[in-house]
Design a binder for these strands. Structure first.
Lengths: 217, 217
DNA sequence: ATCGATGTTGTCCAACTGGACAATAACGCT
DNA sequence: AGCGTTATTGTCCAGTTGGACAACATCGAT
């Protein structure tokens, strides 16, 4: 319409990725419900009409953002855990995760009820998480360090415990990171018949996190 | 301004209560972030200006609604649990709760980050929950049916587990009510050295719930 | 009976929302 | 070089939002 400068045109995939990352930044600041096309556009540095060019609706954008966050998060976790010994991997997976990353999950739990696409992604990725943990448990058992009647069942149990502890830690703020880890570790050691204290001594590298909510701008 | 009929004037407290209950109905449908003064006003059957007459801001309204929901919920729970034997009380408290009630908590976890008043209420009521559970644990121990090195610590642990399981059940939908109860009960029995299966056999009355999200209108 | 306090209404507003779309500019292909 | 595709922009829109406020109605106290 008006003057037209040089709009620094980017490839489709690149721009799409940029938009998704900006959306995650907005989500971190205002939650899924607080995402507006204009905020995202402003963060990317484009006009809000362009967002619609890439995502047919706001819901599409929100669901894509969550999916991207978790997919990349889990991919890097898988790689990290594979390089550790079984006990360290277990301790790392169960360890408290960075605030930013869990907030996305908590927001998603809340928002999923009203966003079917988000609910579907949530179900999928929770199963992924359980599967990853089940595999780690199997490795622990195979190494003769613990016991599990059914790794899948124990994984489901421990996933629930880890999520609950994360809520108390991140959302409620009623417990600190040390207490959070202590709770999860004590339940896990008891459930898997591990030597008490072995998980804390594993000095775990907290897993998770690579979609990097960049400097807040 | 225009004609003035008979506005069916209500007492201040009555109206306030009405507004809070309507707000909770909106929260159940759209989450805390989805509460608008106009929706609430429409549900009550008044003009949106009146809501502001009672609550100085939208945030005030939201925080008051959560506070009311949980306060009344916990009050009725306390009364219910006191009338049960220790094991039944424990089983009842840990049992899966109605969907409506947990959704409010999940939404609050998500929204608390951006609403200080909500965060304060959340912290307060989570401590209440822990205290209630700690008391039940003490009764179980006093009755000689279980053991606890520190009821407060165990209460904190089991609260986290119950919340995590509730997330998996209500928000993610990955487990059913039976599996949810089975997980919480197994952890509790192990943690408190209870006879395995005793909680499930207690045939618990699921506690919680009296602020009654009325028929959806 | 009078009057101040307050419950209640209607109406206004500036800001913001998601969506739509025509115009334009850069690109990829032949 | 020409042409179709598409990334990108600016602008419009109808709807909704939280907030403000003057006018009016009802009540309780005196």
């Amino acid at each position: 319409m008006a003057e037209r400068k040089s709009p620094e045109r980017k490839s489709s995939d690149e721009r799409r990725d940029e938009i998704v990352r900006s959306t995650l930044r907005i989500v971190a600041a205002k939650g899924f419900a607080g995402v507006t096309l204009r905020d995202v556009a402003n963060d990317v540095g484009v006009v809000h009409g362009l967002i619609r060019h890439y995502f047919s609706s706001r819901d599409d954008l929100v669901a894509a953002a969550f999916d991207f966050a978790v997919t990349s998060e889990l991919a890097s976790d898988r790689a990290l855990l594979d390089g550790l010994n079984p006990v360290a991997a277990l301790a790392g997976w169960l360890a408290a995760t960075p605030e930013d990353h869990y907030r996305v999950w908590i927001d998603a739990w809340s928002e999923a009820e009203r966003t079917p696409a988000l609910a579907a992604a949530l179900d999928r990725h929770h199963r992924d998480c359980e599967a990853i943990l089940a595999r780690v448990i199997e490795r622990v058992v195979d190494a003769g360090l613990g016991a599990s009647a059914d790794p899948a069942v124990d994984a489901r149990l421990l996933t629930a415990v880890a999520d609950g502890v994360a809520v108390q830690h991140h959302a409620v703020g009623i417990i600190g990171v040390n207490e959070a880890n202590a709770i999860v570790y004590s339940v896990a050691e008891r459930q898997l018949a591990l030597e008490p204290g072995i998980l804390a001594r594993a000095n775990p590298v907290p897993a998770r996190g690579n979609w990097a909510v960049a400097p807040a701008r």
